[in-house]
Amino acid sequence: MESLSNKKKVLEVKPLNFWERAYLPAIAKGLSITMGHFFKKPVTIQYPEQKREFSENFRGQHSLKRDENGAERCTACGLCALSCPAEAITMTAAERQKDEEHLYREEKYAAVYEINMLRCIFCGLCEEACPKEAIYLDGDVVASDYLRKDFIYGKDKLVEAPLNQ
């Protein structure tokens, strides 16, 4: 049949000549190729000591941000939980007391804020939904662990470290 793409190439299968059938030259060639690799620099990245650089828009572990005075920005509006396609986020809201103004920016805050890291798909929709710029996926890779319950990260792991410490 006529080739339409004009890319058709008829391959000719030649019988092997003596040296090709003897294998040994081919083996010698293969050995020289592997020897070339023997002296190449390994491409391995020694993981815990060395780390590959992440891209700028890498999404890692979440962190709950503080404002310039060190108060938590999150107001427990629940938009992140609502936007989360994996339903990984839950929270319990609480009202700010009189003497807690330096701790929480708005009058309402999240008393409990939990993300299930096994459910999270790191899509970043929570970050986009947040009206207070309180959550960002700017952390490192989420560490492995032994138990499922240990993957539910609370505020102790999520909230940014206080400013002046």
């Binding site: 592997t34 690799h37 023997f38 190449k40 620099k41 390994p42 491409v43 391995t44 020694q46």
Partner: peptide
Amino acid sequence: KVAAFFQDRVGPN
């Protein structure tokens, strides 16, 4: 080790 070197790796270290 030799296997690793032939495959551009590091091997047990």
